[in-house]
Nucleic acid binder design. Structure first.
Length: 442
DNA sequence: ATGTTC
């Protein structure tokens, strides 16, 4: 078994664990590791862990888990800008062999899904209704008749983050968000058709099944919430007599008014993202129903990888109430399953949790994807269009963005090495592998 | 990630 432990030193509040193979560890930038170690110096932090897809982020690295004791820090920067960025997998009721013309599916999906930076929605909501969606997420979509009751099942939090408080959200965030439900966004966000390539231990999936994976989050809405509260945290620093190791890890006391407000606004963004992925599912359903009347779109699973939430865990034998920040890390309870998307053109995985000392040390967390190997700037500079095309193989990709070299598979770590890292560090193991068929990038 | 240097 391989994992790395960085013992608690005097400026740290806890040891830091990094769950990675040596091959993966050697690819992790020093800056990302330093960010992870740095997060353990915040007062009141009890647990810090890194996943094998660790890379540099804002404050807390992507792939980072940071948990605070009661009235310890709640840090908007540690959750990040894309609150409740997450991934969902849909069953289609079809086999890949049922798809006669991939280009038609690709074109119809591309027409139906608003994608790209600043792209607006084709749906309209009154402000009252939008705020109800922020308060109750998918529950509201069901009550309003937009989706069936089944939309909440297999969705983390049942698509309804309980602590959401739309009144803690700024006017600016409301204005940006109200036009962005049912949109994909940009960057690493995608809708991908996938084939179940192999199944070892996953009920109700068979080789050859056609699946749809959706990766997106809370768009400009979550971004604005994050911006607002990072600014507020810098301003309220003196009020609570705090000092930050870096401004990017600015935080509130969890039990302060501002801390509770952030959790409420973050929850509203979480519900926005659950609703966004749910609406996109309906858009995908519509396209499939038109092209393939026999199709039957069902939610297989949906979960977030950017969020903070209250959880109970044992730390050094003592049960504690913790505020667990996960950025680019997925909660995975023993016995549960998680989706781990690769980069475009490579495979994705469904993993099952191990039940081990390390799953406990990680606070039941797992990787969220392949993780970048290089920065976006570096990718655009060093990856040639030719090498990028070659790396895609025969996967059809269309993109809203002009230059997607920063999203090339070549810019990401090898997903198979990330998965094997999870295995050898005893966090999780793969139960199914999914291969891309075609991909709509944001 | 992001009305991508508000």
């Amino acid at each position: 078994m391989t994992f790395y432990k960085f013992p608690k030193e005097e400026n740290m509040n806890c040891p830091v664990y990094l769950f990675a193979s040596k091959e993966i560890y050697d690819q992790i930038e020093k800056t990302a590791l330093n960010q992870l170690l740095n997060s353990s110096t915040l007062p009141g932090i009890e647990v810090v862990a890194g996943m094998p897809d660790l890379h540099q982020g804002y404050g807390l690295p992507i792939g980072g888990v940071m948990a605070a004791a009661r009235n310890g820090p709640i840090s908007p920067g540690a959750v990040g800008f894309d609150i409740n960025c997450g991934v969902r997998l849909l069953k289609t009721g079809l086999k890949v062999s049922d798809i006669k013309d991939k280009n038609i599916v690709l074109r119809r999906l591309q027409q139906a899904i608003p994608a790209g930076v600043g792209e607006g929605s084709n749906l309209n909501f009154s402000e009252q209704e939008f705020k109800e969606i922020l308060a109750d997420g998918v529950k509201k979509l069901i009550e309003a008749g937009y989706v069936s009751r089944k939309a909440a099942a297999n969705c983390e939090d049942n698509g309804n983050f309980k602590e959401a408080d739309p009144d803690a959200v700024s006017r600016e965030a409301l204005n940006r968000g109200i036009e962005q439900l049912n949109t994909l966004g940009s960057g690493n966000h995608f809708v991908e058709l996938q084939e179940v390539a192999s199944v070892s231990d996953s009920d109700d999936l068979e080789e050859g099944d056609l699946m749809v994976m959706i990766h997106t989050g809370s768009r400009g809405f979550g971004h604005q919430v994050a911006t607002d509260y990072i600014d507020l945290a810098k301003k309220t620093k003196d009020k609570y007599g705090l000092s930050f190791p870096t401004n990017n890890l600015a935080f509130f006391p969890w039990d302060s008014k501002e801390g509770r407000d952030y959790l409420g606004a973050m929850g509203a963004a979480a519900n926005f993202a659950y609703a966004n992925r749910t609406f996109l599912t309906e858009t995908v359903r519509k396209v499939f129903n038109e092209l393939y009347p026999d199709s039957n779109i069902e939610l297989f699973y949906d979960h977030t990888h950017n969020i903070a939430r209250e959880e109970k865990h044992f730390v050094n034998g003592k049960e504690m109430d913790l505020l667990v920040h996960r950025k680019g890390a997925t909660r995975l309870e023993p016995g549960g399953k998680a989706l781990i998307p690769g980069s475009m053109g490579t495979g994705s995985y469904i993993v099952k949790s191990a039940d081990s000392e390390n799953t406990r040390l990680s606070l039941n967390s797992t990787a969220h994807g392949a993780g970048r190997k290089m920065s976006r700037t570096q990718a655009k500079k060093s990856i040639s269009r030719q090498d990028h095309q070659r790396s895609l193989g025969d996967v059809k990709v269309v993109s809203a963005g002009k230059n997607i070299l920063d999203e090339s598979p070549l810019a990401y770590k090898d997903i198979t090495e990330v998965i094997s890292s999870l295995q050898i560090s005893d966090l999780a193991y793969p139960v199914a592998q999914l291969k891309p068929v075609l991909c709509i990038k944001g």
